[in-house]
Design a protein around this nucleic acid. Structure first.
Length: 342
DNA sequence: AAGCCGGGGAT
DNA sequence: ATCCCAGGCTT
């Protein structure tokens, strides 16, 4: 790309963004803390979803120190329903690291930023440019699409990073240019039916010139979700239900659930082996839950603790109305609704 | 390089 | 039903 073309692109895009930027909560006060929370929440998550969580999260954890002082379970509970829960755990760990190792201030150096858990190449570049004005490139899903369409071909990741680096080096204001690049992808240069008529870059867009803007970039290949089965048992005792915590690794790590057996295949009720012995199992219903990599068939049961077996106390007994402190996946919340609805 | 990690909006 | 989303981490 020539210097002249890069200058045209950065100018046109920055002009558009200065005029059209959405008013978003994390754009009101540009503090490092607000920027960091929004960056984590926005990873692989659309702005409209983040808007449902961000204000309450900031209210509950207003500063790095407040977040660092919280328990991980509190942070997970504030995150529940938003997905990709490792982000919440990483954000919590990052806050603790910032307080412990950086005096409660976010480092400005891009390499130091990337040493924080949950901050990779993109988030480090985003913080360095938007928060600190450094000419660091960023490439996310939006940017890859915008740059590919400008170039008239599907860019490989390293090509896109090279384009982004050259462009941001030509920009008068790296913060405006980078944030505008993402906003352009979200608002104008959308995956399907891009609003080319309203685009400030239309005269510079090679995909549009060839009429292939809907074909560029080519869709990523995706594996189809694996089908699995989760057998969930509601165990009651004096109006309370037994809840157990999931393992630290894998799906919904460290979150809570009713006792659950997972299998790659359908099982007969008689062959289910729960960690805690449960008898008199009876079916209450079923539903499907979809994630990016799994199609989970939930089988909801009820049963009783096996009185002949010793209960190790693995879990906690709670009234279904008093579980606000137990972070749970949306799927297990659906299970609970089905159980309580009976 | 490929797999894993959620949940929902848009079409 | 399919694609996508202000990606990062692990293998």
């Amino acid at each position: 790309m020539t210097r002249d073309r890069a200058r045209r692109v950065t100018r046109s895009l920055s002009t558009w963004f200065r005029k059209s930027a959405r008013k978003l909560p994390w754009r009101q006060r540009r503090t490092a803390y607000h920027a960091l929370v929004s960056e984590f929440m926005l990873q692989q998550t659309q702005v409209s979803r983040v808007l449902e969580y961000y204000p309450a999260f900031i209210k509950q954890f207003p500063t790095f120190r407040a977040l660092a002082a919280a328990d991980e379970q509190e942070v997970l509970a504030a995150w529940q329903g938003l997905g990709y829960y490792r982000r919440a755990r990483n954000l919590h760990r990052a806050a603790r690291q910032i307080v412990a190792e950086h005096g409660g201030r976010l480092p400005k150096n891009i390499d130091q930023l990337q040493e924080l858990p949950g901050i990779g190449r993109f988030t480090a570049g985003s913080l360095a440019s938007i928060l600190f004005g450094q000419a660091q490139p960023i490439v996310d899903g939006n940017v890859l699409r915008v740059l590919s369409r400008l170039a008239g071909e599907t860019l490989a990741d390293d090509q896109a990073w090279a384009h982004a680096a050259f462009l941001v080096s030509m920009a008068d204001d790296p913060a405006i240019f980078n944030e505008g690049l993402m906003e352009m992808g979200a608002i104008v240069c959308t995956p399907s039916a891009p609003r080319c008529g309203a685009c400030n870059l239309k005269r510079l867009c090679r995909a549009r010139k060839q009429g292939i803007q809907e074909e560029v970039p080519r869709p990523r290949t995706r594996k189809q979700p694996k089908k699995v089965h989760h057998y969930v048992a509601a165990v009651r005792h004096r109006g309370k239900l037994l809840f157990q915590q999931r393992p630290e690794e894998g799906l919904w790590s460290n979150m809570w659930q009713l006792p659950t057996v997972e299998s790659d295949r359908t099982c007969k009720v008689s062959e289910l082996v729960f960690e805690t012995p449960i008898t008199q199992l009876r079916s209450l219903g079923r539903f499907e839950h979809q994630t990016s990599h799994r199609r989970i068939h939930f089988h909801v049961l009820e049963g009783k603790l096996d009185a002949s077996a010793s209960f190790q106390g693995q879990g906690t007994w709670r009234l279904p109305t008093k579980i606000q402190d137990l972070p749970m996946s949306n799927a297990q919340r659906k299970v609970l609704a089905m159980v309580v609805g009976q």
